[in-house]
Amino acid sequence: MAAFGTVFMPEMALAKFENGAWSKAEFVSASSLQMHPGAHVLHYSSTCFEGLKAFKHDDGSINIFRMDQNIKRMAQSSRLLNLPKVDGKQLESMILDVVKKYADEVPAPPGSMYIRPTHIGIEPSIGKAAAPSATSLLYVLLSPVGDYFAGGAKPLRLLLADNGMRCAPHMGMIKSGGNYASALGPILEARESANADQILFCPGGDVQETGAANFVLIDGNEIITKQLDSTFLHGVTRSSILTLASDLGMTVSEREISVDELLERAAKPGTEAALSGTAAVLTPVGTLIHEGKERLVGSGEMGATTAKLRSALNKIQWGQAEDTHAWLTKVN
């Protein structure tokens, strides 16, 4: 089977912003993108994107999960990057139209159609290092995917980093490619030096996020995660998991958590930790690595609460449980 996110549908939806207005969206080849080598995005990283999924239900219908939240976040990212203002209604239509076009290609669960809206500045001007791009492209790519963890969601090993951040603090809640590039070096170093799967950024001892996912700690009936601020990504899956935890009667604590508290709680029997994200859903964390020492989180395996929350989310996405929060948008 092809690696996750490497297969694409032959066409994508695309619209262009120029002369102060958006063009009508159209379907174009997904294998070619026209831009000048001096395009703003190639030199000054004026780019943001989203990741969401469409699911096939037993009745044959195709349903997109929390599209409204991803559109809202893309509009926010575009605004904070000073890209042209995104037309939310147009982006919604682009997503619905391209998913409908390839509805027959949406895999059955646990597979899905990964949807990647992308917004890039394309003005050919290498003199605009301190000015925004006046023109841009907005496009929506589709990639049919299987389970992110083909062999099952194995507990991850996280290296806790007291120094450094995933990205610049004022860029934290922007879903921009530059933030992922910023985290790549530390992630690769963590893999090399500690055999870690990911790095958990904890600047000044404040537990934040990994290079590509939000972090949650589960201690008994309490789920703990950092409160929202501008320094880290506001995950849609994170929000969904916290809502489901509340539905199950759990105490949801959105607050600061220190490395010391994390390590103390993680050592207790029954404690669980996990990463949340669109691709990985909710993936267990089994080991924390800090100052050269490895510490198991609880039993070191996926805990019952993590499994329950992951299953609850999947069942809604797959149409196997009632969508009480109106998170799904039916395409056909």
Rank of each mutant, 00 (worst) to 15 (best):
M1K: 09
A2T: 06
A3T: 15
F4V: 01
T6E: 14
M9H: 08
M9L: 12
E11T: 15
E11L: 11
K16T: 15
F17S: 06
E18L: 11
G20A: 11
A25C: 11
V28S: 03
A30Q: 08
L33M: 15
M35S: 04
H36I: 07
P37E: 09
G38P: 00
H40C: 11
L42W: 11
H43T: 12
C48V: 11
E50R: 10
G51Y: 13
A54F: 10
A54P: 07
F55Q: 02
H57A: 13
G60D: 08
N63W: 03
I64W: 05
D68E: 15
Q69Y: 11
K72G: 04
R73Q: 10
R73T: 09
R79W: 07
L80P: 04
L81Q: 13
L81H: 05
P84C: 12
K85G: 03
V86M: 14
V86N: 01
Q90S: 11
L91I: 03
L91M: 13
M94D: 02
I95A: 01
I95D: 02
D97P: 04
D97E: 14
D97Q: 13
D104G: 11
E105V: 02
A108H: 07
I115C: 00
T118E: 09
P124I: 13
P124M: 11
S125K: 13
S133W: 12
A134F: 03
L137T: 12
Y139A: 03
L142N: 07
S143L: 10
S143M: 12
Y148W: 01
A150G: 08
A153N: 04
K154Q: 14
P155E: 07
R157I: 00
L158N: 04
L159K: 12
D162K: 13
H170V: 14
G172K: 03
I174L: 03
K175W: 10
S176P: 09
G177Y: 10
N179H: 05
Y180A: 09
G185N: 10
P186F: 03
A190P: 04
A190W: 01
R191E: 11
R191M: 12
R191H: 12
A194N: 14
D197L: 05
D197M: 06
Q198A: 14
C202A: 13
T210C: 07
G211D: 08
G211Q: 10
A213T: 00
I218R: 03
I224P: 13
T225S: 04
Q227I: 09
L233N: 07
G235I: 08
G235P: 00
V236G: 05
T237Y: 01
S240A: 14
I241W: 02
L244E: 11
L244Y: 07
L244C: 01
S246W: 01
M250R: 06
V252F: 00
R255S: 12
E256K: 14
P269A: 12
E272R: 04
E272H: 04
A279Q: 06
A280V: 14
L282R: 06
T283G: 09
G286I: 12
L288K: 00
E291Q: 15
K293G: 03
G298S: 09
M302G: 03
M302H: 00
T305W: 04
T305E: 00
A307R: 02
K308E: 09
L309K: 10
L309Y: 05
R310G: 01
S311F: 00
A312R: 10
A312D: 06
A312Y: 07
I316G: 01
I316R: 02
A321L: 11
W327K: 09
L328D: 04
T329L: 14
K330S: 14
N332Q: 10
